[in-house]
């Protein structure tokens, strides 16, 4: 545990900018900084300008926003559900989105870009179903956040089964497209897609920051939260819904990218950040840093092929998490 220091915040932002710059520099070919600046300001080689402006820059922007959104979502959920292992993907978001995408593929939606909508709808349906399951089970276990987690896991398992059935008899196009999508990637990033997610991130992110004091209170437990004036069920549901929306938007934009929502809040807590407003804001920055870095690894590890981003985040995330668990006693 590191004591929080005032300089941590500007340092984190500086690191984010630095990493974003690295995201512009590194790829299959390394573009020197001078050429990057030339490309941004409008001078310089045409091919390099194209690569920097229309390929790498939106990609870095999308990676940063995906990371920020997932991490904020994870930080909020962990607090509200009082579970340090909670993350958006555990709540059925990923499963539902995957079902939406796979069905859309199967129905012949050719353009991968148009998967965003069915994936988003799938995620929302799954979250709605999880809430219903939780409410049905909740009569017996009122206010127990584990009910919500369990409901999410159950919906996720069901979604998996649907995917298996849908893929069992599908064409190779559907299969390949679905798999690629399920492994997550920001390779298809465009400014339009980045802007779209940015809009979501702005609205939902602000909502989470506003909900942060409520999450602080929820984290104390059901009775303590009620004693402090929180409408526990409603507050939990709201946080759940906003977080799920945020995660669903990332899933629609970049497929499934796991572990970010789980580990980033832990990293930020390790810097002594505890109140949720700071935790959520810090998670946004660190999440951005992490996913940009993971994407740099994804595109430089095996050129000219690219690794799936979701696989890279898992490869980074799992060992990190095990170390954290070990230190947590």
């Amino acid at each position: 545990m590191i004591a929080p220091r005032a300089w941590h915040w500007p340092a984190a932002v500086a690191l984010l900018l630095f990493v974003a710059l690295a995201g512009l520099v590194f790829g299959v070919s390394t573009i020197p900084l001078s050429e990057i600046f030339a490309a941004i300001t409008g001078g310089g080689d045409e091919t390099t300008t194209t690569i920097v402006r229309t390929l790498r820059a939106p990609r870095v922007a999308l990676a940063a926003m995906v990371g920020a959104a997932l991490a904020m979502s994870g930080a909020a959920l962990q607090g509200a559900l009082r579970n340090s292992l909670a993350e958006p993907y555990l709540l059925g978001v990923s499963g539902g989105a995957a079902v939406g995408a796979v069905l859309a593929f199967g129905l012949g939606l050719q353009h991968t870009g148009s998967l965003a909508i069915p994936a988003f709808v799938g995620a929302i349906v799954a979250v709605g179903a999880a809430l219903l399951v939780a409410r049905a089970a909740g009569r017996a276990a009122r206010g127990d956040p584990r009910t919500l987690l369990m409901a999410g896991v159950i919906i996720g398992a069901f979604a998996n089964a649907v995917i298996m059935v849908a893929l069992a008899n599908s064409t190779s196009d559907t299969l390949r497209g679905s798999l690629w999508w399920m492994m997550g990637s920001v390779a298809d990033a465009s400014w339009a897609g980045a802007l779209w997610l940015g809009l979501y991130l702005g609205v939902a992110g602000l909502a989470l920051l506003r909900l942060a004091p409520e999450i602080d209170v929820l984290a104390l437990g059901e009775e303590a939260a009620a004693a402090l004036g929180s409408d526990v069920e409603r507050a939990t549901r709201t946080v759940f819904l906003v977080s799920a929306l945020l995660a669903a938007a990332t899933v629609a934009a970049a497929g499934l990218i796991g572990f970010v929502g789980l580990i980033v809040p832990h990293i930020v807590r390790a810097f002594g950040v505890r109140r949720h407003r700071r935790l959520i804001a810090g998670s946004a920055i660190v999440g951005g840093i992490l996913v940009i870095l993971a994407d740099v690894v994804a595109r430089t590890a095996l050129p000219p092929a690219e690794l799936p981003l979701g696989a890279v985040t898992a490869l980074i995330g799992v060992p990190f998490f095990l170390v954290r668990l070990g230190r947590m006693r």
Partner: peptide, 29 residues
């Protein structure tokens, strides 16, 4: 919560706070 303060039997410390931060939560209502 502005009329009656309750100190329940159970309270979670999954995500511990600094005492200063914790006491400040009393102002949440």
């Amino acid at each position: 919560a502005r009329r009656v303060a309750v100190v329940p039997q159970r309270e979670e410390t999954v995500f511990p706070l600094e005492v200063r931060e914790y006491v400040a939560l009393g102002r949440y209502p």
